[in-house]
């Protein structure tokens, strides 16, 4: 996963991009979540700089046992998408 994937989703019409990863230190791929976080941080700056807005992408961290956190994250992103104007590129 990198910044290009996030941008590709948006340019293909996605209203928002949500990433869910393991907590730091609990990732099976060791540093995969850190790499993803770096790219999400960069994607946010990029989206701000080109006028899309950084709130369209977010990364959430939760472990396998924390289904409540996942639900909260999905609720949050759904709320954002509902409030934001939709992406005309669909």
């Amino acid at each position: 996963m990198d910044t290009a994937d996030i941008l590709h989703a948006i340019r293909s019409g996605a209203d928002a991009v949500m990433l869910v990863g393991c907590k730091f230190g609990e990732c099976d791929y060791e540093t995969g979540n850190r790499t993803a976080k770096r790219h999400v941080d960069f994607a946010k700056r990029v989206l701000d700089s080109i006028g899309v807005g950084s709130n369209r992408v977010e990364m959430f961290f939760c472990s396998a046992a924390e289904s409540d956190k996942l639900v909260a994250a999905i609720t949050e992103m759904t709320r954002r998408v509902e409030e934001l104007p939709s992406n005309p590129l669909k």
Binding site: A4, L7, R38, V46, I50, G51, V52, N87
Partner: peptide
């Protein structure tokens, strides 16, 4: 905010793949 310009998004998509940009992020 919330401006979606296809050509700009395409350019941004190419730009983030530019090796010298990617390297610094990675």
């Amino acid at each position: 905010e919330n401006t979606f310009e296809k050509s700009k998004l395409d350019a941004a998509y190419y730009a983030v793949q530019s090796f010298r940009v990617r390297c610094l992020v990675d």
